[in-house]
């Protein structure tokens, strides 16, 4: 499934009566836990994300300097993380949530999420997933054309940064999570919270 996500503030909600599309609500939420410096020095952060497309899994991404280690685990991993948070820090556990309706049109899946960070509205993320294809390079143009159909000229012709090196690899659910994390990171930076 090739996916592109675009962060845009997007006002008019009532355009969304696509003939043939149907909706049900979904959400993605994430929690980030910075860990205090240990002997090696450097700031480590663990991001824990849940995606309602994969309800039985928990995604965790550990960032340490330039290293990024992803992990996919069962729902019970949340409990282990809870125990470990006694290890880790106290402060600054920011929670970001992206929640909204989900539409299906033929083989496309469109999700409109409004991003809120601890009750404050930050913006809107639009996620488009083209499910029949597994390699982004094949269908990038196709998705772009589809999105142009309703977002107009606001669509950039640039491939999202995360996907640039991965256009010819098989797409995994973890890639969706990475893209969301990228956008959440941008939201955090814009408010000055890391």
């Amino acid at each position: 499934m090739g996916t592109g996500s675009l962060g845009r503030t997007w006002p008019a909600k009532n355009k969304w009566q696509i003939p043939g599309g149907y909706e049900n609500g979904e959400n993605i939420n994430s929690q980030s836990l910075p860990i205090p410096n240990q002997k090696n020095g450097g700031q480590r952060t663990v991001h824990v994300l849940h995606n309602s497309e994969q309800p039985a899994s928990v995604f965790a991404i550990l960032e340490y300097g330039n290293k990024v280690v992803p992990l996919i685990a069962d729902r019970l991993f949340d409990l282990v993380i809870l125990k470990m948070t006694n290890v880790c820090t106290d402060k600054k556990q920011t929670k970001i949530e992206c929640k909204g309706p989900r539409f299906e049109l033929v083989d496309f899946c469109i999700k409109l999420g409004s991003v809120t960070m601890t009750q404050n509205f930050k913006g809107v993320l639009v996620e488009i997933e083209y499910r029949p294809s597994v390699v982004p390079a094949n269908c990038w143009e196709l998705i772009r054309e589809f999105v142009q159909g309703f977002l107009g000229s606001a669509v950039s012709s640039q491939i999202p940064q995360y996907l640039q090196n991965r256009m010819n690899e098989i797409y995994q659910p973890m890639d969706t999570i990475h893209q969301y994390l990228e956008h959440f990171g941008q939201y955090r930076k814009s408010t000055g919270v890391i």
């Binding site: 083989d107 269908c139 196709l142 054309e145 589809f146």
Partner: peptide, 19 residues
């Protein structure tokens, strides 16, 4: 080239959301 070619006649990739 199912997803990467556009239609020869209309030039678009999608027609009623299908390649």
């Amino acid at each position: 080239s199912l997803f990467s070619d556009s239609c020869k006649r209309c030039g678009l990739y999608l027609h009623s959301a299908l390649p």
